[in-house]
Nucleic acid binder design. Structure first.
Ligand SMILES: [Mn+2]
Ligand SMILES: [Mn+2]
Ligand SMILES: [Zn+2]
Ligand SMILES: [Zn+2]
Lengths: 140, 140
DNA sequence: CAATTATTGAAAATGATTTTCAATAACAAA
DNA sequence: TTTGTTATTGAAAATCATTTTCAATAATTG
């Protein structure tokens, strides 16, 4: 999904397209790492000096609401965001450089059924996240 | 694992057993829901009025360090703690009442191998969490 | 019991996020 | 294109969670 598609989404949902929003969208969209609001702010400000941190927060909030980005939970903290995955995918994160890859093809259904049976819960949702070292970080 | 075992663990690691710590340990240990520091504080203060919130933070920190409790990540927030699981287990949470159950027997190894192969990552760790409705919340 | 020293809670400090507000920029309609 | 309406902006202040500082106190050890 392109940055223009993100801007369209914003527009279609009644939000105005502003320079501040463009630069936040560009920044998050371009990153293969999860970025915190401050990191987005620092990167984006290089392209648009007048940007305010508040606007970064407000824009991230809207992008999350429209499911264009998603929050990434890590042992180190849970304030960072990445471009959202498409369809049923999960995250794989490099513990060294932060690089993120989505993968699909997990088959947790049998597990879910067995756990549901044992516990009496009706299971509605699951989170799965893998951590490791990317090819680059392994060799260097 | 009993509360006395937790206190022993604290003691064996050079920490003193105080009234404040006892009451924090009791509170977290007794709960089948994840509790935030403020929730622990409110509950524990009913038994020990002089307790300070700072001490709750400090005690939780030590319990986490000794792997007696673990942080629970949820869409609503990531500051809550529960008694830690034993061995290789994962969490199942009720989205309505917050009740927590641990389960084991996931087999994500084949998936991990296949993802490792596709992505070139060396996978070191995984998080899996299930969400749903507990038996009580389903029927009521 | 006495001496040592970790622990305590209050208060202040910090850091992240949210709210308030007046100025401005986006955009729909003319 | 101009114009009017109104969403959006950034600065500053407010709020909320967490951490640090500090002098008084309580837990341990001998
Ligand atoms: Mn899945
Ligand atoms: Mn597992
Ligand atoms: Zn890496
Ligand atoms: Zn989290």
């Amino acid at each position: 999904m392109s940055t223009t598609a993100w801007l369209e989404q914003l527009h279609d949902n009644g939000y105005r397209i502003t320079s501040a929003r463009r630069v936040v969208v560009d920044t998050v969209h371009a990153s293969t790492r999860a970025l915190t609001p401050i990191e987005v702010y620092d990167k984006a400000r290089k392209k648009y000096h007048a940007l305010g941190l508040v606007t970064v927060y407000r824009t991230l909030e809207k992008l999350e609401e429209l499911h264009l980005i998603q929050r990434v939970h890590q042992a180190a903290g849970c304030q960072a965001f990445v471009s959202a995955c498409h369809g049923h995918q999960h995250l794989l994160l490099c513990q060294n450089c932060g690089q993120i890859v989505f993968f699909e093809g997990d088959d947790v259904e049998p597990l879910i059924k067995s756990v549901a049976k044992k516990t009496g819960y009706e299971i509605k949702e699951h989170w799965l996240q893998l951590f490791g070292l990317c090819a680059d970080c392994r060799s260097n």
